[in-house]
Amino acid sequence: MIAASSANGLVSQLRGVRMNNWQALAETVEARLAGISSDERGVFAAGVAERHLSWHESLPEDHQAPFTLSLRPLLDSVWAGVLGDGSAFAAVNRGVAEFMLSEYCHNDGQEGPQEAGEPAAEATLQAAHTYLFGCVEFAIEVSRRAVDAADLRDDYFDELRGYDIPYTDATLVAEVRRQLRDLDLIASHADELGGAFRRGLAPEISARLRLELRTPLSSQD
């Protein structure tokens, strides 16, 4: 029979392992996304995509992907929409339609252009779908593509160093923990965001939310 103190210690250890496992944390993110409003999901998706698109934009030119860079106007329109500007819907709809009709959207597998598979690009496109349709599946894809982008960031730094360091999932854990913090911040504005997509928000509220939500959600910290 295990003593109570030993049992409690084992439970604490197991709980610690779970809370430091990025896959377990990602499941928590996905469960929370399923339980919030489509308006909150839109802001979450925009914020996560923003962090990774802006980081891609900061790379040296020879590491940047032109297609990914071309999505900046689309993401800016998504931001406008999720923060209450109803007129942004047409711009986001048009941006997604242009992608759908382009050579980058195809069913040719590895034989076709691969640019839309770059994680920051894919996160941005999924963020646009999250805004347009509100579906949790699109928001979850944003979360997952952000994890992929974080993993590629480690590869980039390995390339700069000229050697690989022993792999850990610390970067992935940090990314998913950041997503959980983003959800906490967004939840504190849930009442204001309610109906932002359907009714829009007053310009002064949208302006304040840009400071209170877009700015911190865009931060790399």
Rank of each mutant, 00 (worst) to 15 (best):
I2E: 10
S6A: 13
N8Y: 15
N8M: 14
G9A: 10
V11H: 10
Q13D: 13
G16K: 10
R18K: 13
Q23A: 12
Q23T: 03
A26M: 13
S37V: 08
S37N: 03
R41I: 00
G42E: 05
V43N: 11
A46M: 01
A49S: 11
H52I: 14
H56W: 04
E57F: 06
L59R: 08
L69M: 11
S70F: 06
S70T: 13
L74H: 01
G86I: 06
F89P: 04
A91G: 09
R94D: 14
R94C: 04
G95Q: 08
V96P: 11
G109A: 11
G109W: 01
E111K: 05
A116G: 05
A116T: 06
G117N: 15
A123M: 09
T130F: 08
Y131V: 02
G134I: 00
A139G: 08
V142S: 09
S143P: 09
R144G: 09
A149C: 12
D151M: 13
R153C: 10
D158R: 09
R161N: 08
V173H: 00
E175P: 03
E175V: 04
E175R: 07
Q179R: 05
S188N: 12
L193D: 14
L193T: 01
R199A: 15
A202H: 09
P203S: 00
P216D: 00
D221Q: 12
